[in-house]
Computed example of a mutant assay.
Amino acid sequence: MHNSKIIFESVRGLEAVPIDDVFLRDRKVFLVGEVNDESCNGLIKQLVYMESEDNTKPIILFIDSPGGSVSDGLAVYDVIRLMKSPVTCVVTGIAASMGSIILLACDKDKRFMLPSSRIMIHDCSFGNRQIGGLKPFEIEEELNQLKHTNERLVSIIAERTGKTVEEVSEVTKYDSYFSAEEAIKFGLASAVIDTSNFGTIVGGKN
C-alpha cells in the first residue's frame, strides 16, 4: 500500500506519485494495523495538516485496526474532537479496542461500516506490561491507574453512544464484537455502506 504509486501526466511529463499522497490531497487518511506511536503520530500529522489547510472541508478516515496503545489512541481521539473539520469514519475491516475509540471521535451520524466489518469493545488490560517482581504497593498503583484509564474509556463509549456507564460496563467486561447492524443498534455506528451510498460517502461528498 505504502509503495503503490499513481501515474499522472503533467507539464513535466509522466510522474509517479505515492497513492497515499493522492489520498491526502483528497482529504482521505487511513489507520490500518496496530494503534501505536508510529501510526498515530503519522495520522495526527495528516489530520493537523488538513485542519490547517482548510478546516471547513470534510475528512474521511478509514479504519481497519485491532487496537493497541491507549495513550496513543486517546491522542488521536482528542485531536479529532478538537478539530473543526468534519471527520467521517469508515470501518473497512475491524475497529477493535482503541480502534473503536478512535471511531467514536467522529460524530454519530458520521460513523459508517462496510457490510462485513465489525467493531469490538472491551475493558483495557495491562497488555505487555510485566508486574512480576513489583511490590504490593506498586501493583496497587498499577491497578489504580488501569482502573482510572478504564473509567475514561467507558465514559467515552457511554457519552458517544448514548448508553449509560452501567450499560457499557456490562458489555465491556468481555471482548464484545458487533456486526454492522448490531453496532448501529448499540449506537457505535450510524449506517452500513451499500451500493446506494458508497459513492457519496467514500467519494467525500457527504
Rank of each mutant, 00 (worst) to 15 (best):
E170I: 13
K108D: 00
T92L: 08
D107K: 10
P115T: 02
D72E: 11
L74F: 02
E159V: 10
L103K: 01
N150S: 03
G127K: 07
E166R: 14
N144D: 15
L134G: 01
V154N: 14
D109M: 11
M120W: 00
A158V: 04
F112H: 14
I157R: 06
G93W: 05
M113V: 08
G99P: 03
T88S: 07
D109S: 14
V87L: 04
M120G: 03
V87W: 09
G93F: 05
L104S: 14
I156V: 13
L74V: 00
I157H: 07
I119V: 15
D72Q: 09
T164I: 10
K84N: 14
R129P: 01
L146A: 02
I80S: 02
H122L: 07
K147N: 15
L143E: 12
V90R: 08
N144T: 14
L134D: 04
K108T: 05
R152T: 08
S125F: 11
T164H: 03
I156K: 10
D123P: 00
L153C: 02
F178T: 05
I156M: 12
K108P: 03
V87M: 03
G162F: 02
E140C: 09
I156Q: 06
Y77C: 03
Y177D: 15
Y177V: 15
R118E: 13
V76K: 05
I94V: 10
L143H: 10
T164N: 01
I94C: 00
V90F: 08
F178M: 02
Y177A: 10
M83R: 07
F112E: 12
R111E: 08
V91R: 01
